[in-house]
Amino acid sequence: MTVSTQTVSTIQFPYKRTLGPVMGRFFSELTARRIVGIRSGERVIVPPMEYDPETGNELARDFVEVGPAGTVRSWTWVAEPIASHPLDRPFAFVLIRLDGADTDLVHVLDAGAEDAVHTGMRVAPRWRDEPVGRIDDIVCFVPGERAETPEGEPGEAQEVTTMEYFSTITYTDVLSPTLVRYASNLRAGKLTGQRCPQCNRVFLGRGYCSVDAIRLGPELDEDLPDRGVVSNYTIVTPTPYPGQKETEPFARASVVLEGDEMVIAQQQILDLPVSEIRVGMRVRAEWMPEAERDAAEITSKGWGTVAGFIRGWRPTGEPDEPAEQYMNRVF
């Protein structure tokens, strides 16, 4: 049976950044459609920084209004924007020297076509309709001297102290030959590992010995029992965070496979109230139905998981093993 040799995962998370006094002032001014820089010696730095970037010395909070128009100092044309770009149509990234500034500002230019862009051209901001106090309150710059502003006068500057930043990155993880074999065997309801010829330990889903640092190939494959002993556990009271689905206390146990081999960590114990889980308890794997087995959790990082194949472990009812013998085997 074959499995997909790659897994795709997207890590998404909203960050909330606190801005501090200097950036806070810059973003607050943006809400009133004003751009400010900060004086650093003879120079006006835009956007303003808390410190002189050359020396680290703290700057006096001497803000100077600049622009809004400026001159393009460098540019490049993005014909095919990607999702993380600020505009979804062809645009230019530009370095702009705003009038009154002594440094350049990185931003984007909506110029329609590549041949409309050149170094030295004059540009001005296009303001967002409803400012939020972020660098993209300037949606982009546009050719010309005049800022594009929404109807009506800007209100008073709103005090901006935080900034939202949403990060989303998709990773495509290609599985190693060992992991492909491991996942195929799991799909067939078999746990396999490789036994290190040097130290005689078995490792699951790694392809190498963590102690001796030698690669372990398919010739060392060994089927392992899907029965074992609970060596330890914890009962977790879930805390909410983006993506968290657990609401009630849940248990996660470590299971030492029969024969005192590999530990499989963070397992669910089935059909047992969390309060009754014991160290030394004998359990057997409850495999997912074949049609539901899924290798999405198998990745090239980490140490071999059975998630997506084994739903959890069910007590066998046999007498417990002595707890002390197993307790250290957590991971």
């Binding site: 965070y241 993506g243 968290q244 657990e246 996660r252």
Partner: peptide, 13 residues
């Protein structure tokens, strides 16, 4: 908690 769990539900932290 999110970071340690790799962004997945049921992070044990």
């Amino acid at each position: 908690q999110f970071g340690l769990g790799g962004g997945k539900s049921g992070s044990i932290g």
